[in-house]
Design a binder for these strands. Structure first.
Lengths: 177, 177
DNA sequence: GGGATATTATTAACATGTTAAGTGAATTCC
DNA sequence: GGAATTCACTTAACATGTTAATAATATCCC
């Protein structure tokens, strides 16, 4: 009775609540952040198992992937490229270096900066994962439609641009101190 | 021809590490997961400071928001509604209960289930945050365009649907064990 | 030249994401 | 009606997100 059977998978269904109080501000589950979150989760759900089979997390994969597009790169630039915050990147680089998937050296001109590059071993791993990853991406593209997908990405980019310079009050102005 | 940006073309013939290695599979920074991630971050960047000023994280806010849309709700349903995994929800509910922002009781008919509802104090907090939150949402809508925003959300929903039943190999089939 | 300041990267501390395992309660099924 | 199974939730363990604080170097600027 009620409840179908949702294995251990919390995400991926609708929840029709009981007495239904009145709708608040917005239907909430239809808010923009939620829409983006769910869409991304739907996409990543496709990739995660494959990555996991190769011992990689999503972020580790992002970093290695980013490193294949350059010869070498400074940490801060890599953070931008892989869209990770510094602290996360620091931790992951430490692990990837320990696994010898990347190499790190100090910049000659500026001892503060570290320069990172992917190792042969890392490259090999990427090459092992890439085919599956590409196949999944192709399947997604086929399902959703290449044209529609391109349009979606364009709109997402436009959204980013729209918000890039946006500021507002209540954003942390706490008197002084 | 051999150079067209085809599938597993990670290494250009060999891993000859010359200067400026060339672009791999996809421009990477333009992959769908990255696009979604950046778009969502651009949006959340607007909300986080305000939430923070009220002592709430994004997820705590999601939960309280979800709770305002129902009279009371079971934990599993709430997980679906707020799109959180069980373990995350468990932790957050523990904290929110300690802060007396929510109330929890055990279902009478099924001792396994817990029923959660927002408290008066929680409702008050929501009401304090909502105006700013609404203002930010309105600003985003104005900047991006209401029509365009609706279209984007439709496309995101469609993407979710497209991928909902998608399966593929390499997804964790490790013999048996 | 040298103190004040800025920059780069890391560490710290806490909250969440993610998967697996555990606990207690309900259901199934013989 | 009781063992086996399933279910709802929680804990555990590890990785990352997020903000603040540090440490080490570079740069400014008088």
């Amino acid at each position: 009775m009620a409840r179908k059977k949702s294995s251990n998978d919390i995400r991926g269904g609708q929840a029709e609540a009981g007495s239904t109080r009145r709708a608040p501000m917005r239907e909430f589950s239809r808010s923009l952040p939620m829409s983006l979150l769910r869409a991304r989760e739907a996409v990543m759900r496709q990739f995660r198992p494959s990555l996991r089979n190769h011992g990689l997390t999503e972020q580790q994969w992002r970093i290695l992937r980013a490193l294949t597009s350059v010869d070498e790169i400074e940490v801060t630039e890599l953070a931008h490229l892989a869209f990770l915050l510094g602290p996360s990147l620091s931790r992951i680089l430490r692990d990837l270096e320990a696994r010898q998937l990347i190499e790190r050296k100090t910049a000659a001109t500026d001892l503060r900066r570290a320069v990172v590059s992917i190792s042969a071993k890392g490259l090999k791993l990427i090459e092992a994962v890439a085919p599956t990853s590409e196949a999944i991406y192709a399947a997604i593209t086929k399902r959703y439609g290449a044209r529609r997908l391109a349009e979606l990405q364009e709109m997402l980019g436009a959204l980013e641009m729209s918000l890039s310079g946006m500021v507002h009050d209540d954003a942390g102005i706490e008197a002084d101190e």
